[in-house]
């Protein structure tokens, strides 16, 4: 119990509560339900992407191409919509395309054995370049999109827009997948100890491939949501957003070395960044501060994490108190 109260997730929760309370003290309007719902809705795309990125990082890889994947699928979704394809087909198509783009990353990591940072550094420029090749750099604007296409993410159900429900659904599904399915536990096993994973019958490369596929599919979903919500598609949609995604993971305690972290931490990381982003205009600070603040948050998060996990030396001298690990069952 004590461990649960001092865990990383708990510390991050305290930080979020303290920060929100501080803001609310001066600007009570920030914590009205509608304002909080707004903040959540604005953070929804980040949350969906972070789930995918978290899985990739758990397997000791990194996906820098998420924002480019998002932009490409978003553009394709807008073009399909423009060609008169019904929305019921556009969304699955966006997800499928995202999954395929993720599979390309995954195959290069799994089958060719290129480090993921190199692969996704390459594909992030390639995917954005492909948007340019498809459109010649032209924008797809609001008036070129069908109403149904634009309406879905804003559609309110039970008081929340569909955008938020999308994020909630993804979080719920992956909370189960990560803890209760073989694949979910395999992500931890592969990142935690690749050698041992092989002996446990887990194919490390194939699991990494699955991680990239999921990350791509989720980016595909966000591609549609993003483009329809902002009602515009162009080459540089969500430019640099991959860094926010990685930042949220780091703040949420996902270890870059693989194998450590969870959905709860990742989402807390998103909420932390989301609150900063939405609170700045409220408290009257220029949005130009946001970048420096999230940068500082990343550095602090990784430093705190490292201090918590610092090796303390082997315990050889007879301890006065038996270590907690020796917890004996009655």
């Amino acid at each position: 119990m004590k461990a649960a109260l001092t865990s990383r997730d708990a510390l991050l929760t305290y930080a979020i509560i303290a920060m929100t309370a501080g803001i609310a003290y001066r600007f009570p309007a920030f914590i009205t339900p509608s304002s909080l719902a707004n903040t959540f809705n604005d953070t929804a795309p980040l949350m969906i992407l972070v789930i995918g990125q978290m899985i990739v990082i758990l397997t000791k890889c990194i996906d820098l191409s998420v924002a480019a994947t998002l932009a490409l699928t978003g553009m394709v979704a807008a073009l399909l919509d423009g060609a008169g394809v019904p929305l019921a087909l556009v969304i699955p198509a966006a997800i499928a395309l995202g999954a395929i783009l993720g599979m390309i990353n995954g195959l290069l990591v799994w089958r060719v054995g290129i480090p993921s940072i190199v692969v996704t550094l390459g594909t992030m420029t390639i995917y954005r370049g492909v948007i340019f090749l498809m459109t010649n750099g032209k924008w797809v604007n609001a008036h070129e999109m069908s109403d149904a296409f634009k309406a879905l993410p804003r559609l309110h159900v039970l008081g929340l827009p569909m955008m938020s429900w999308g994020a909630i659904a993804v979080i719920a599904v992956f909370a189960v997948v990560m803890t209760r399915t073989v694949l979910g536990r395999s992500f931890y096993a592969v990142g935690g100890n690749p050698h041992a994973a092989v002996y446990a019958g887990i194919d490390v490369g194939r699991t990494q491939f699955a991680a990239f596929t999921i990350s791509g599919a989720l980016a595909g979903l966000v591609g549609y949501l993003w483009v329809s919500r902002y009602a515009v598609a162009y080459v540089d949609v969500a430019g640099g957003f991959e860094l926010d995604v990685v930042a949220a993971c780091v703040i949420g305690g996902i270890s870059i070395a693989g194998g450590i972290g969870g959905v709860r931490g990742a989402i807390l990381g998103c909420i932390f960044l989301g609150i900063i982003k939405n609170a700045l205009p409220v408290i009257g600070v220029s949005p130009f501060w946001q970048m420096a603040i999230s940068g500082t948050a990343i550095v602090l998060a990784v430093a705190v994490n490292a201090l918590q996990n610092r090796p303390k030396g082997r315990l050889i001298l007879k301890p006065d108190v038996p270590p907690s690990a020796q917890k004996v069952q009655a």
Binding site: Y188, G192, N193, A196, A197, Y199, G259
Partner: peptide, 8 residues
């Protein structure tokens, strides 16, 4: 090497 998943 058989079973060594620290986080499980």
């Amino acid at each position: 090497e058989t079973v060594l998943f620290d986080e499980l």
